[in-house]
Design a protein around this nucleic acid. Structure first.
Lengths: 190, 190
DNA sequence: CAGTGCCGACCGTTCGGTCGGTAACGTGGC
DNA sequence: GCCACGTTACCGACCGAACGGTCGGCACTG
């Protein structure tokens, strides 16, 4: 039974990864056949694990939210004890594609593509609440957090729909955002 | 003949508007029948004007880009002669939903949804180039422009996939971005 | 044998796109 | 003025392909 369950977990993981990549590449309209092919399972096997297309895509959204959270948590610099360390990790992960090449795990992109799937919006609202709470505990001026996080999200979608690839501008954006988290206090002098 | 052409233009406009609204509401997977119904034409009439589904969606993308450009141009304050007036107009239009209620003309949202349609990415890259040039002529510190525009875009998509509607946070974001365009010089003190 | 992961042929539906037809119009000959 | 004719906007029944989902069965495990 343990062997079976390990297989189950492995198959589910493969499907979730393949589905996320397929949605990023071909939009939310990807067929089950295409996802099944990419994950190297049959459509029957796919539906055996996820029940329906909508249920699969909903789980993809939840899974990506969790992966992104984990990635950010792992990216927090242990030597960094200043305010805004979580925001800095958030920015680093968002721009991770710069270092890794085209990354499949781009949560914001997934979110935009999947927002029409029933239930996904609810998942994202909960995820946003989590982030708001986590950022509140991070200690940085709320205006700075808002600005930096929104700009990071904006850069992520821009990479999707602008064909990506103004690497220099992306790098510059990242450095700018990171620098903005290293100060505190009002952003605009009165 | 003049009468025919006026009808043609009116029908095309109705279809373009209905299609944009339908894509925002139901994702890029909306059927031609649904769009045709919303625009009050038959599917045959729709395809008579646009040839194919992809061609229609491509034209929707181009049309929305143009509408957004025009809206920003019209929103430039004639009494405002300081640097960054174009960026301020961009921010105002992006957050226009705050004043008008839920607005259909949300270019960034459309862009994210349509990015999987063949040709759309190319349209957007050209659009980005136009904006970059226009912003360069606006005189503001490039870092400020980059930051403010990305943050505005990020707020727009966040409204889509987070279920929208943290009105207070949106209003705050808008004021913050506008204030950031009213100063110049380096954003972060060294 | 019971249980489970997985397959792939199959079904009903829905989709994008085609096509023959109709009505309304502009145009040129008379 | 008016009729005949080509052109254009538009309709909706129809088609083949592709889709999401079902199901009976096979292989393997415990």
């Amino acid at each position: 039974m343990a062997g079976k369950e390990r297989d189950t977990a492995r198959t589910r993981r493969a499907v979730l990864d393949a589905a996320a990549a397929a949605v990023v590449a071909h939009g939310a309209g990807v067929s089950l056949d295409a996802i099944a092919r990419a994950a190297d399972v049959s459509k029957g096997g796919l539906l055996h694990h996820f029940g329906s297309r909508d249920a699969l895509l909903l789980e993809v959204a939840e899974d990506q939210a969790e992966l992104f959270r984990d990635a950010v948590a792992a990216a927090v610099d242990p030597a960094d004890h200043a305010k805004g360390r979580l925001v800095r990790a958030y920015v680093s992960v968002t721009f991770a594609a710069l270092d890794d090449g085209p990354a499949a795990h781009d949560y914001v992109v997934l979110a935009a593509a999947l927002s029409a799937v029933p239930g996904v919006v609810e998942v994202m609202r909960l995820d946003k609440q989590r982030w708001d709470e986590a950022f509140a505990a991070d200690g940085l001026d709320p205006d700075r957090v808002l600005l930096v996080v929104r700009a990071a999200d904006g850069a992520a979608v821009a990479g999707l729909y602008e064909g990506g690839y103004d690497v220099e501008q992306l790098r510059r954006t990242r450095e700018l955002l990171l620098a903005l988290t290293r100060e505190d206090g009002p952003l605009v002098g009165s």
